[in-house]
Simulated assay, not measured.
Amino acid sequence: MTNMLTYVTEYQNMTFAQLPFNELDGVILAQLAYVDYNILQQQPQRQFSQIDSVTLLEKSVAQTWNPAANYALLLALRQSRRYQQLRWSNWVQHTNVAVEEQFSAVTLTFAPHRYYIAFRGTTATLMDWKEDFNMTFLDTIPSQRTAQRYYDKAAREFPGRYYLGGHSKGGNLASYVVAHSRGALQDAIVSAYSADGPGLKTPLSPQIKQKIHKFIPEASIIGLLLEPGLDYQVVKSNATGIKQHDPYTWQIQDRKFELVATPSHLSQFTQHSVAGWLDNLDDATKQEFLDSLYALFAATKYQRIDDFTTSWRSTLKLLAPELLNTKHETRQQWRHVTGQLLNSVLHEAKNVLDENRPHLRK
């Protein structure tokens, strides 16, 4: 399998002067937003090449979506001449329950006066998923505003050339910062990399488009959410379904991602169905529906998504009384919203059938 780890190993002796920063570097560094720097900071060094404890490296990625691959990445970076200057600073991580925000970012220096700000994507916490869903009815979510402030402060304190990026929600945050930066702060941004991150709901200007490099896998669902245009490239993946959301499954060729023409039919079908569903609901209805659903799951006292899947029998027992105690108006709203989703799915299915009928007749 040829993926990002292969790239780090094969080109470990080529400096950025010999092989300029590219899309693979952009997505690789985005993965470093998931590292728990609170663990790595047990050592005084802030440079990956100087970390001598493999135990700390392993612990720092233990809670990520793909611990084995992230651990292998850290080991490869540690031995790479290309990334020998790579160091981290200004790591922040905070959760604000009141405004439903979960944010984390880190600044990575990979060459003199060359910085990469990695915004963390969606984690396995219920709060993080709720903030993602809030994008459907809010013009701006709290993490987007925090990401803008984080970049503004970094660019003013450390002048230089900036690259931004992130996976999933992190890609959305990076795109948001590019789209909303002005003047010298805009000029300092070289490019941004969104690895299967949701869109910004509105079309972007040509100036902004040329700076944002968005990649989605063939079976993308998350990366096509709130995406109004076709400003993305589709990457071949060796996984199936939602597992393609993991960039380590993305294939590379000739120091670039291996591309395919379009997302899969199922991915496009899902995108159009969800887009139609959201268009049929006003923002107040979206908010009420998501708030009530979040409150229902929060009442179980579970805080992580994997708690719901690994303890599904216990989850059902906890949810049953909460469902019974839900107000009649709330249950009616759920029926309305889910009914609209079903209508959107059926409408999209009819459109697909109508498009294929001429081919079926042949």
Rank of each mutant, 00 (worst) to 15 (best):
T2E: 14
M4D: 00
T9S: 13
E10G: 09
E10T: 10
T15S: 12
L19D: 00
F21W: 10
L24N: 04
D25N: 11
G26S: 03
L29W: 01
Y34E: 05
L40F: 01
L40T: 03
Q47F: 10
Q50N: 11
D52N: 15
K59V: 08
K59N: 12
V61P: 00
A62S: 05
T64Y: 02
W65I: 08
A69W: 09
S80C: 12
R87V: 15
W88C: 07
Q93P: 04
Q93D: 05
N96V: 03
V99C: 06
F110G: 03
H113Q: 10
Y115G: 07
I117G: 05
A118V: 13
R120L: 15
L126F: 11
W129D: 01
K130W: 14
D132F: 10
F133W: 13
D139P: 12
R149W: 07
Y150W: 13
Y151C: 10
Y163K: 02
L164W: 00
L164K: 04
G170Q: 03
L173H: 06
Y176F: 15
V178P: 03
R182Y: 06
G183L: 06
A188L: 10
D196K: 01
D196E: 07
G199T: 09
T202F: 13
L204D: 03
Q207L: 10
I208N: 09
I208S: 11
K209I: 08
I212F: 07
I212Y: 05
H213G: 06
I221P: 01
L224H: 06
V235D: 05
A239N: 04
A239C: 01
A239K: 05
G241Q: 14
I252M: 01
R255D: 01
R255I: 08
K256I: 10
S264I: 06
H265D: 15
L266A: 14
F269G: 08
Q271R: 11
G276Y: 09
W277M: 02
W277G: 12
D279H: 14
D282H: 04
D283N: 11
K286S: 03
D291R: 09
Y294P: 00
F297Y: 15
A298Q: 15
Y302H: 13
R304I: 00
W312R: 08
P321G: 07
T326H: 06
K327P: 11
K327S: 13
H328G: 03
Q332I: 10
Q332W: 04
Q333F: 12
Q333L: 15
W334Y: 13
R335M: 10
R335V: 14
G339N: 08
G339D: 06
L341C: 08
L342A: 12
S344E: 04
E348S: 08
A349E: 11
E355S: 06
R357E: 14
R361V: 00
K362C: 12
